[in-house]
Design a protein around this nucleic acid. Structure first.
Lengths: 141, 141
DNA sequence: ACTAAACGTTAACAATGTAAACTATAAACA
DNA sequence: TGTTTATAGTTTACATTGTTAACGTTTAGT
């Protein structure tokens, strides 16, 4: 039962990615949102000026998905769309007070989960991991 | 526009994983199937004896998903379910002739895609990548 | 024999990926 | 100016995937 070949690298990566997300969700189970945490962080960094199109680029997902993400965060009371006066096609994205209050905890949870995942690795291991992944990512463009 | 923080490691990994899968799908676009290639490889290795439950363990996905995978591969003419005489609850999974003919190409495509992704990396880089990922995976159990 | 467990199936629902068609605004340009 | 083209965002539609629950059949445990 144990002499089957190892999973290819792609399955390996997506499995770890899912485990990381689940760990984060478990840490933040008491919040009103259970996903789109990174989108929320980018919106914070945008300081009310980031648009859905820019978010789409940063998340590397299409604009339909971003509409859904913003609908979700908006319905849960974390984000508001604000029409930009200079270009009324665009919507600036702004955090609500609720989101501003909860964001430090979200960021901390994310750091903790990643630190737990990296436990037992040296700083050099981690640097080389990022370097190697960066090379792979560029190879795949 | 470029001073946003980098994506967390989880997004990084899933992005690369999706790119790898898309590259493989593009290489095998002429086949009748566009997914479940690794499942097919495991079934080959099982030599007609692997069951859906065992496949579920190896793929780390639940039994419902495996039913869908086998339905898919079966409808496309790649796999057949064979009732096991010794335990009639179980279904052995066997490759069709069609699958046996196409599998070498599938395996080669997978190797090529991975090799292209690893281009520019040393053997040591790759070994350390697997070691690091293995540590991370264990940390997340 | 009776009960519990294992294997596989079906059904239901939410979430995600992807594409097409659409509204509204803005930009390009004759 | 007016006409055309492009951009930002939305809506709709459909296939795939993840997840849970309920179910039939068969086997194992007692």
């Amino acid at each position: 039962m144990e002499n089957y070949s190892k999973p290819p690298i792609g399955r390996y990566l997506s499995g770890i990615s899912k485990s990381l997300l689940h760990a984060l969700q478990n840490r933040l189970i008491h919040l009103d949102i259970d996903r789109n945490f990174y989108a929320l962080m980018l919106i914070e960094e945008g300081q009310g000026k980031i648009t859905q199109q820019e978010l789409s680029d940063l998340l590397e997902s299409d604009k339909v998905s971003v509409v859904r993400i913003i609908d979700y965060l908006s319905n849960k009371g974390y984000v508001e769309r604000v029409k930009e006066p200079t270009d009324r096609r665009k919507h600036g994205l702004a955090l609500t007070e609720k989101a501003k209050i909860e964001l430090p905890e979200i960021k901390q949870a994310m750091e903790d989960v990643i630190q737990a995942a990296f436990s037992g690795l040296t700083a050099k291991n981690i640097t080389e991991l990022y370097n190697t992944l960066s090379v792979i990512k560029k190879n795949l463009i």
